[in-house]
């Protein structure tokens, strides 16, 4: 994380929500915003940490992921150029509801929560921009909810395989019996058998005695709200 050059007004206007923002608020924004760079894989913030900034993607892509209490990871979406995330420092959402991690070399514009609070009292244009961001986020979350709620048995089996995969060098494998898998997903063994066979035919897994080798983990990712979900490795 290296702080660098100040942000130029034109660069800020490349972020869609700021496209039509008048000069004055743009100048007050660039005066308080910070440019930051992250390397691939670097964590930008962690779920549960205090949320204190609004982040805008200038270059690269950011993965938003959630962790369960058991350490299970669920990818929620991918934020690319122009997108805004971490939009929870206002009002009473104190902690980040998810983790953000750089997928490539990422450049972000950061708006500290405190500065934002001060600015928004003075400038209705900024509140309008915030409303825009929140409204977009709401639409996105509604879509993610629907997709997560509509997972089929096959999606859940795939999800289970990814969750319980062990890694050995380059190879990922799952050591679970078909009965166990069926019980975890809430189905019967025959359904699991049939699904694993069809995955094998498609070259996504190889079924061996006592274990399932995962050949193509990306193909097992269940659907989520983003069409571009499958791009992250």
């Amino acid at each position: 994380m290296i702080a660098t050059l100040p942000i130029k007004p034109d660069e800020l206007r490349e972020i869609p929500v700021f496209h039509r923002l008048p000069d004055e608020p743009v100048h007050s924004l660039v005066a308080v915003m910070v440019r930051r760079h992250y390397a691939p894989g670097q964590v930008i913030f962690l779920e549960g940490e205090q949320a204190n900034s609004l982040w805008f993607v200038s270059e690269g892509r950011v993965k938003i992921i959630k962790h369960s209490l058991n350490g299970r990871v669920q990818g929620l979406c991918l934020m690319n150029r122009g997108k805004c995330f971490g939009s929870c420092p206002l009002f009473d959402m104190e902690n980040n509801p998810a983790t953000a991690q750089a997928l490539d070399n990422v450049t972000l514009f950061v708006l500290p929560g405190e500065a934002l609070q001060q600015l928004k009292g003075r400038d209705p244009h900024l509140v309008k921009a915030l409303l825009h961001i929140y409204s977009q986020r709401l639409e996105h979350l509604a879509r993610v909810s629907e997709v997560l709620g509509s997972w089929t048995v096959s999606d859940r089996i795939n999800d289970c395989l990814l969750t319980y995969a062990n890694r050995e060098g380059q190879q990922s494998y799952v050591e679970l019996t078909q009965e166990k898998l069926a019980a975890m997903v809430g189905t019967v063994r025959e359904v699991v058998t049939r699904h694993l066979r069809s995955l094998e035919r498609e070259g996504i897994v190889r079924n061996e005695t006592g274990r399932i080798i995962i050949l193509n983990a990306d193909a097992l990712l269940p659907p989520c709200g983003c069409e571009d979900r499958r791009t992250p490795a």
Binding site: R72, Q74, M93, L148, G149
Partner: peptide, 17 residues
Amino acid sequence: ITNRLKQFVTLVHDLAF
């Protein structure tokens, strides 16, 4: 809008985990 947003964040967490 924030309140609705928070509701959806919780829903997504529940559905995922």
